[in-house]
Structure formats: C-alpha cells, structure tokens
Nucleic acid binder design. Structure first.
Lengths: 169, 169
DNA sequence: ATCGAATTGTTATGATACAGAACAATTAAA
DNA sequence: TTTAATTGTTCTGTATCATAACAATTCGAT
C-alpha cells in the first residue's frame, strides 16, 4: 500500500540491502570495521579515556594535566619545551595548561638563571600532595583495566604490541 | 657568577632533579608514563591515525568519513541514526558529515516510504567507485601496520586484547 | 666582540572534534 | 485522540590541535 514505484518486493522492507545500486559484488569483500586496526585502536582508546576522565572528574584533572604532573613529579626541573615535546604537546598549547596548574597552586615556573628565556618546572609542596592522591585514583583505574585484560602479563603483551606500532625505524 | 641565591651546587645545573622540593621520596614510586595503558594506547592510536590521515589526504577523506562509507558499502539502506550510533557519532554531528558526502556525490539520502521521518543511506554509483579506490589505499596502510606488528597473527593478538578492554560485561 | 640565526615562552587565530539543548515533523503508545 | 517517543536537524559551547608571528635571549660563525 506504500510502495508506489516498481521495485523488487523484498527491497521494500527497509534495512535489507538493495542490490540495484550498481552491483556491489566485489564490494562484498570490503573489510568490516571490526577488522581494522585503527578503528579498534580508537574505540579502545576512547573507552580507556572515558574511564580515566570519569575517574578524575572529582579532582578536576584531565589526561594531559595528569601526564604533565607525572613528568614533573619524576623529573623536576625540566623546561617547558622539554616536557611538551616529550608528551607530544605543542609548546604553544602547553602555556595555558601550565597556567592552569600554576593558578591552582600545584606547579610553578622558576626562572632558570643559566638561561633567562626558559622556565624550569616544578611541583609545589601542595602539588606533591595532590600527585599522591592522583596516583591513588590512577591505580584503581589501571587495576580495573588490567583485570579486564586478564592480568598483568596481558597488559605487558598489549603494551609490547603498541610499542611495535609506534617504534620508528 | 650566575648563582645568586644559596643553593646546593649540583642543583645549579638545570636539568638535574632538585630534591629540596619537599622530599619526593615516595614519589619515586610514581609509574613512568611508559607503563600506563591509556597513555600508550593514545600514542599508538595517534600514530596510526597520522598514517591513515596522510594516506588519505589526496582523496580528501577523513577517518570518520571512511568509516561511514564502509558501513554504507557493506550494509546499504541503514538509517542515519543507526549508522551514527554504531560508529559512536552523535546524530547531530552526523548531519554535516553526511551533507558533505552527499555534496560530493558519493552518497545519498533516500526518503524511506515506510517512515517519513527517516532517511535510508546509500552509496551512489560514483560512491561505489570511490570506495574501491579507498579500499586500495586502505589496504596499503593496513599492510604497513601489520608488518610493523610482525605479521597477521600479531595483528589478531592485538585486536583480541583491545576487544577485552572494550567488552562490556 | 659582533652580527645573523636559532631557541624559548607567549599570544592570537583558525580548524576540527565532540557533546547537549531545543525544535518540527512524524510515528507509536496510552 | 491525546500523549509520548523518535528522526533529522540547527544552534551553541567547549576542548583539542596546529600554525604563524613576536620579543627576549642565547648561540654560532666569523
């Protein structure tokens, strides 16, 4: 009662493939997105970041900020550009990020006396305390992931494979 | 000649850790970013997308558009919302994306006669040809990645691990 | 020691990705 | 039939990311 144009009857039920497009015979060999590395990688990364973000909403901390605080905790005194480059953040975009951490009293820029252009970056005492809490939250998040993966060995396997992708040679 | 303030001499050389922050004794136990799943996942995903994007600049095709064309090729006739949801794209943001594909003559919205609200999405004949070329480019990209991973078995291992992460249960 | 080139932090700007609210047309449910 | 839900859409806001330009400073080659 609704089909006005002539058309194979089974094609009328929407949701069924219409084969009259121009035969998609060879297009049947198109890989499903499920088999595409980049697609799966992205979905997994989105999932992990989602969990991470939710874990840190209460602390008002975003992934990039987490990474910066981590580096400052382990290697205080690095210059802005050094940290930015290591984390793959453009130094132009690093400024606002560092401004925010400084405004919150978690980190500070110190004028380096050997090079008046650069700033060396450090956690404040308050920042140190913050990082301790941050790491506790992170540990819970990470353990959740390791469990989903099936144990620490699987985590290591995953990281090793990811390494191969990103290794430049 | 440059050190004005009293300070341990070795700390004067920038780049060396200053331990006078408030002892970071226990902070030494902070995990390096290299051991953090989310961080490694993100870096790997960025790398793969970078390669993908470069591969498709000539065709002026972005990852999201690739994924939409893929789905339309394999399962023509799906509604906008169905594709968007499957790909994790908000239907609001899907509109411009589909507009673009339609303007380029690669895809089209057909008014579904059973539900006047919805559109069923299809490749145009030109879109079919485009997808063939697209898949050739994609194959080269994917083979590059598989080689870096060390073979198809490693690719499968990776995908399986990524699956575990994103599997909801 | 000087002059041109490179570096550092910064600002400004634009492109893109992503999320939420609201709305009209239409369909489904009560 | 009235009410509620769905579909596509527009609008808007925010976060992310890249690029260009600039002043202050340092470095390098003479």
């Amino acid at each position: 009662m609704s089909d006005v144009k002539t058309r194979p009857p089974e094609a009328a039920k929407r949701g069924r493939p219409r084969l009259d497009e121009l035969t998609t015979s060879d297009l049947e060999s198109i890989p499903a997105l499920e088999t595409i590395i980049g697609y799966r990688l992205r979905r997994a990364q989105l999932y992990v970041f989602q969990d991470f973000i939710e874990s840190f909403t209460r602390m008002k901390l975003r992934p990039a900020e987490f990474s910066v605080l981590s580096v400052m905790a382990r290697r205080p005194g690095l210059k802005q550009t050094e940290i930015a480059e290591e984390l793959g953040i453009k130094r132009a975009n690093f400024v606002a990020l560092m401004d925010s951490l400084e405004r919150r009293g978690l980190a500070e820029r110190r004028k380096a006396d050997t090079d008046k252009r650069s700033h060396s970056l450090h956690l404040t005492p308050e920042g140190v305390k913050f990082v301790r809490k941050m790491m506790a939250v992170w540990t819970a998040h990470e353990e959740r992931l390791v469990e989903k993966l099936g144990g620490p060995e699987e985590r290591d396997r995953l990281i090793e494979l990811l390494d191969r992708i990103v290794a430049r040679d």
